[in-house]
Amino acid sequence: MPASYRPHTRDDDEHEHSHSQTLATNLSASEATVDHVLETKSGDLFTIHPHETIGRAVEVLRDQRIGALLVVDAEGELVGILSERDIVRRLADTPGRTLPQTVAELMTTKLETCTPEDSLVWVLRRMTDGRFRHMPVLEDEELIGMISIGDVVNFRLIALEYEALKLKQLIVG
């Protein structure tokens, strides 16, 4: 074999460079917004009226497998939120007499809301500091959705799984 002979190697081929994270394929936790989470949800809004009973609210919560209901007036305007936690507290205070009470008697009227542009980090901080798990989403003062702490955690878990997959692909090739 001549001394100048060199066998063909992988380095002789041109390779397409890949990146494990780009803005187009992966958002950092600090860049993710409420809108990114809403895009992954069905868009269904479950509401109840203030004059309805807690018994009816419990049925909707059970049937829809959700943890809170948005309370809207006859015009569809957001006037409160009713969570499982609100109901459990009242059950402890008025055992045997809670289900006939109205949603208006139990609902939270001092609402914490967010917009689609708000960062998930900011929303999580507000939920944690305020010790609540559901937040209505308003755009131009109009109700467009609701985000839960579970939605945010699930969104972040999926993002972490994606990051892990991309890193694995980068390592394996």
Score class of each variant (00 low, 15 high):
residue 2 P to L: 05
residue 6 R to Q: 15
residue 7 P to N: 06
residue 7 P to V: 00
residue 9 T to D: 09
residue 16 E to I: 15
residue 17 H to K: 14
residue 19 H to D: 05
residue 21 Q to R: 14
residue 21 Q to G: 00
residue 22 T to W: 09
residue 24 A to H: 13
residue 24 A to Y: 11
residue 27 L to Y: 08
residue 27 L to C: 08
residue 28 S to V: 10
residue 29 A to H: 12
residue 30 S to N: 10
residue 30 S to C: 03
residue 32 A to G: 09
residue 33 T to S: 14
residue 33 T to D: 07
residue 33 T to P: 00
residue 36 H to P: 04
residue 38 L to N: 01
residue 39 E to C: 13
residue 40 T to A: 14
residue 41 K to L: 15
residue 43 G to D: 14
residue 44 D to S: 13
residue 46 F to C: 11
residue 47 T to N: 07
residue 50 P to C: 12
residue 51 H to S: 09
residue 54 I to R: 04
residue 55 G to D: 13
residue 59 E to W: 07
residue 60 V to C: 02
residue 60 V to W: 01
residue 61 L to M: 01
residue 61 L to E: 00
residue 61 L to C: 07
residue 63 D to K: 03
residue 66 I to V: 02
residue 68 A to I: 03
residue 68 A to M: 04
residue 69 L to R: 00
residue 69 L to I: 04
residue 70 L to C: 01
residue 73 D to M: 05
residue 77 E to M: 08
residue 79 V to Y: 06
residue 79 V to F: 11
residue 80 G to M: 05
residue 80 G to T: 00
residue 81 I to A: 02
residue 81 I to Y: 02
residue 85 R to N: 00
residue 85 R to A: 02
residue 88 V to M: 02
residue 89 R to K: 12
residue 90 R to T: 14
residue 90 R to I: 05
residue 91 L to D: 11
residue 93 D to Y: 12
residue 93 D to R: 10
residue 93 D to T: 07
residue 93 D to C: 10
residue 94 T to I: 05
residue 95 P to N: 09
residue 97 R to L: 13
residue 98 T to D: 12
residue 99 L to S: 10
residue 99 L to N: 05
residue 99 L to R: 01
residue 99 L to H: 12
residue 101 Q to K: 04
residue 102 T to E: 08
residue 102 T to C: 08
residue 102 T to H: 09
residue 103 V to F: 05
residue 107 M to H: 01
residue 109 T to I: 08
residue 111 L to Q: 01
residue 112 E to Y: 14
residue 112 E to L: 15
residue 114 C to D: 07
residue 119 S to F: 12
residue 120 L to Q: 02
residue 121 V to Y: 00
residue 122 W to S: 06
residue 122 W to K: 03
residue 123 V to L: 07
residue 123 V to W: 01
residue 126 R to L: 14
residue 126 R to S: 12
residue 128 T to P: 06
residue 129 D to N: 13
residue 129 D to S: 15
residue 130 G to E: 04
residue 130 G to R: 02
residue 130 G to V: 11
residue 133 R to Q: 05
residue 133 R to N: 03
residue 134 H to W: 04
residue 135 M to A: 06
residue 135 M to N: 01
residue 137 V to K: 01
residue 141 E to R: 15
residue 142 E to V: 03
residue 143 L to K: 10
residue 144 I to K: 13
residue 144 I to V: 14
residue 145 G to K: 03
residue 145 G to T: 04
residue 147 I to C: 08
residue 149 I to V: 12
residue 150 G to E: 09
residue 151 D to T: 04
residue 151 D to K: 00
residue 151 D to A: 12
residue 152 V to Q: 02
residue 156 R to M: 05
residue 157 L to K: 13
residue 161 E to H: 12
residue 162 Y to L: 10
residue 163 E to C: 05
residue 164 A to C: 11
residue 165 L to C: 09
residue 166 K to Q: 15
residue 167 L to N: 14
residue 168 K to R: 14
residue 169 Q to F: 10
residue 169 Q to V: 03
residue 169 Q to W: 12
residue 170 L to I: 12
residue 171 I to Y: 11
residue 172 V to D: 14
residue 173 G to P: 08
